[in-house]
Write a protein that binds this DNA or RNA. Structure first.
Length: 839
DNA sequence: AGCACGCCGACT
DNA sequence: GTCGGCGTGCTC
């Protein structure tokens, strides 16, 4: 017996850019291909209008009131997103219990707005008389001329035919009209002409002015005439009144600005016209250009936009011909060394794959990493017969679109980008490189809370591409992978141990008095202060990393220990001295600093926990006359002088590292390293270790700056591995053992369930109920931890409760999460698979 | 995410 | 009587 022929799907699952699941749409009229065009964009009716969606699967059928998709926007042979990527993201989203639209909205940054012509007509013979409004006739008409809701009603009844044609990007340009087409009225000018016969009653000066006018031709203003005739304006005005001259309307010469546009146009805008003409010696303001256009000298027309300029690939090809020493495995890692060394080690592999006509995708978590990857890899493409493109938020919409089309068409096969590059339509992906896979920046803060390396791993697997983790230090999760570790860069490190008793020689005669760690100097230790003064004396540069922005972590009343708290969150308010405000760093609430303690009336406050403002102030006091720059979320000073090599000190938060290190950097100080450790998160020490590694490789020059770390935990192993010159694998490998014992990643898969409600008891009850349901469904005590109130018990006025799921595998985690769908919960439940921070 | 619907308190 | 707060539900 022959199996029944597979029936083509009658509907597609389409994801739109909204936090909703993919919905079923009937295939467009006349569609007959056997498979759903996965990854193609499609126009679908949505809330009475047309929306761009992504085909993410074959329809499940059986949906009520299913609507018909209107038109496919991409050729199924060249989808907007590769089919394998669509499948991989789909399974990831399903496992994470996230609606497809939410995930695709986060991961796809280009193509949600389509440019197309839309023509409509009534189906032949259709009776549209029941619609009271103007309706499409049986010949094609522009769809934009009808009310969208009306069109949709006709569409829903199957009485509308639509013609959708994708359009190239156009842009409005200003072109000069032909002289024959300029309206005659536009060509008349008002000028002053001398009277044919001068009246007798003119004064001598008036007569002189009129004679000058007769001799020198018409003038367009009284004042111009006066200037030309070298008389005061009163004279020309008087001459006009006395009948010595008159305003006359006459045909004028075409304006010089028009002639310029005719010859050099079209111009991209009125401004471009004005600038161009002015540069050619024809003074023209933007307003004047607008007036000329309005009077009919120029037209605005739509012209196909030239492709926007894209970031250029670097010219050199470093390392393309080096031997390839990297593993030939489905998943491998490469860490340590310096960024340039890592890319050089990666180059032969990338180069070879590109030469074979295959595709390489490189994902960077932040702008600095992306720029370094671009510098280190983009130069390889040309030698391998293709081109490199960048996909980042820095690009304009037009640039992103053009980039995407270059990849879609096969013209570019090396893509370096952010999370938005994950869906890049590479036709034969051979290698997916995830840079700095441990970086927190890979965790998307928007709706899906996707951790990009997780999704990337699924994409690589589904595409049959190799996956490489590459960065300064491996994530503990990548320790078990086979791979390569480069020798650590030369590091000069000095640890200031706040916990150690101060040494005798430094303290001298004071050694007998009662000592606190503060006697070592706080927040800038004597050691660090001495080194900073040296930097100043030698005209070098230094950077200080403060633990937080603002002046201090909190204000405390010295009399009663009261600390002002946020009104919406259970956290102390941070003190910002520059704005004289108390600010909540969770929700942004702020208020003026109270004059006195509202508990006991004490008029003085004591600041605790130095931030950038405090450190910068302290440093300025220490180094009189030395320029101090600040870099944090509140203030980004212009660092141009530092980058030009001038002496100075920069004080900032971790935001410092998102810029390039200045060239003359001699010293980096971490003012209080413990801030990175005193976080209730099992990844805190891993993050601290990575911070130290990043600081050590921040400056690219041959002589690394001295790194000074001030800490109460000088013996912390994350710091010791650097002091002892161990490689980038040492600490993560040790940490992996700890994780194994505790049953944390990579030896478990985690998901956090966040239950929130406006009232605390509701959130708690719902969380409790959820835990009960999980246990009822067979979850063990090891698999469900909590519920517990969130570390910040109240956040933006709501009470979040957390449950932590800890499963042995992705599959088991997905199984546990399915319990969420079993019924509705009386509070908002959000899933965060592979949560980061604050656990 | 928007947007409509619907249910309760403060005003003309 | 209405206006308007925002909780709940829906989008094929």
């Amino acid at each position: 017996m022959t199996p029944p022929a597979a029936r083509p799907p009658e509907s597609w699952l389409v994801a739109v850019n909204l936090p909703v699941p993919a919905y079923d749409f009937a295939v467009p009229h006349g569609w007959a291909a056997p498979d759903a065009p996965l990854g193609c964009r499609v126009l679908v009716p949505w809330r009475g209008e047309l929306a761009v969606g992504l085909v993410v699967g074959a329809g499940t059928g059986g949906a009520h009131r299913m609507r018909e998709a209107v038109a496919l926007l991409d050729d199924p042979a060249r989808p907007w997103v590769p089919a394998a990527t669509v499948r991989a993201v789909g399974t990831w989203a399903a496992d994470a219990r996230l609606p497809a639209g939410l995930v695709w909205g986060d991961l796809l940054g280009v193509g949600w707005e389509a440019h197309y012509t839309h023509r409509v007509r009534a189906v032949p013979g259709a009776d549209l008389s029941m619609f009271a409004r103007r309706v499409p006739a049986e010949n094609w008409t522009d769809g934009a001329s009808f009310v969208p809701a009306l069109l949709d009603e006709i569409r829903a009844q199957g009485l509308l035919e639509e013609d959708i044609t994708p359009l190239p990007r156009t842009r409005a340009m200003v072109v000069a009209r032909k002289l024959a087409d300029v309206p005659p009225a536009a060509r008349t000018v008002t000028v002053l002409r001398a009277a044919a016969a001068l009246p007798d009653k003119l004064t001598p000066r008036q007569r002189h002015a009129c004679e000058w006018l007769a001799a020198h031709g018409p003038q367009d203003s009284l004042s111009g005439w006066a200037r030309g005739a070298e008389v005061s304006p009163g004279v020309t005005s008087g001459a006009l009144n006395a009948g010595g001259a008159a305003y006359v309307q006459e045909q004028g010469d075409p304006p010089g600005a028009w002639a310029w546009l005719r010859e050099h146009g079209p111009a991209e805008s009125l401004t471009a016209w004005a600038n161009g003409a002015s540069a050619a010696g024809i003074p023209l303001s933007v307003t004047q250009a607008g007036t000329l256009a309005a009077r009919g000298w120029a037209d605005s027309v739509q012209r196909p936009a030239p492709p926007p300029a894209l970031p250029e690939a670097c010219p050199e090809l470093p390392g393309a011909a080096d031997p390839d020493r990297l593993p030939e495995l489905p998943v491998w890692r490469l860490h340590g060394g310096r960024p340039a060394q890592r890319f050089r080690a990666l180059a032969p592999r990338v180069s070879r794959l590109l030469s074979q006509g295959r595709g390489v995708l490189v994902l960077a978590p932040d702008h600095t990493t992306l720029r370094r990857a671009w510098d280190g890899l983009s130069g390889l493409a040309a030698g391998a017969g293709t081109r490199a493109v960048q996909v980042s938020g820095q690009l304009s919409a037009a640039q992103r679109e053009h980039t995407w089309e270059l990849v879609q068409s096969g013209a570019a096969r090396l893509v370096v980008g952010s999370a938005h590059a994950l869906g890049a339509p590479l036709q034969d992906l051979a290698l997916l490189v995830v840079l700095e896979e441990a970086s927190e920046a890979h965790k998307l803060q928007s709706g899906s809370r996707a951790f990009v390396p997780d999704v990337a791993a699924r994409v690589a697997q589904e595409s049959g591409a190799a996956l490489a983790w590459v960065g300064c230090a491996p994530a503990v999760e990548s320790v078990p992978c086979p791979g390569a570790v480069l020798a650590p860069p030369r590091t000069r490190l000095h640890v200031v141990n706040y916990a150690a008793p101060p040494t005798q020689p430094e303290l001298g005669p004071l050694s007998s008095v009662h000592l606190t760690p503060g006697d070592l100097g706080y927040p800038l230790s004597h050691d660090l202060a001495r080194l900073l003064r040296q930097v100043q004396e030698r005209g070098r540069q230094a950077a200080l990393l403060a633990p937080r922005r603002g002046y201090s972590a909190l204000l405390r009343c010295p009399a009663c220990d009261h600390t002002p708290q946020c009104r919406h969150c259970d956290v102390p308010l941070r003190f910002h001295q520059e704005t004289r405000r108390l600010t909540c760093h969770q929700c942004g609430y702020h208020e003026a600093v109270p004059d006195r303690c509202d508990q006991c009336g004490e008029p003085m406050w004591k600041a605790r926990g130095p931030g950038t403002e405090w450190i910068a102030q302290e440093a300025a006091r220490l180094l009189p006359g030395f320029p101090v720059y600040r870099v944090d979320k509140d203030r980004q000073d212009d660092l141009a002088p530092l980058h030009a090599g001038e002496p100075g000190l920069m004080v900032g938060t971790q935001l410092l590292l998102s810029g390039e290190a200045p060239p003359n950097l001699a010293l980096i100080g971490v003012t209080l390293a413990d801030t990175w450790l005193n976080v209730s998160d099992f990844r805190a020490s891993e993050r601290y270790h990575r911070l130290l590694r990043q600081l050590a490789e921040w400056h690219a020059g041959p002589r690394p700056p001295l790194l000074v770390v001030q800490t109460f935990q000088a013996d912390h192993p994350a710091l010791r591995v650097l002091v002892d010159g161990r490689d980038a694998l040492a600490y993560p490998a040790a940490e992996a053992h700890v994780r194994q014992e505790l049953g944390y990643p990579p030896y478990a898969r985690l998901a956090q369930l966040e239950v929130t409600a406006r009232e605390q008891h509701k959130a708690q009850a719902a969380a409790q109920e959820l835990a009960g349901a999980l246990h009822g469904a067979g979850a063990t005590a090891q698999e469900v931890l909590g519920p517990a109130p969130s570390p910040v018990a109240r956040l933006r006025g709501v009470y979040p409760y957390h449950l932590l799921l800890r499963a042995r595998s992705d599959a088991r985690l997905a199984e546990l999460l399915r319990v969420l769908d079993s019924r509705s919960w009386k509070a908002r439940v959000r899933v965060d698979v592979n949560p980061r921070g604050g656990l």
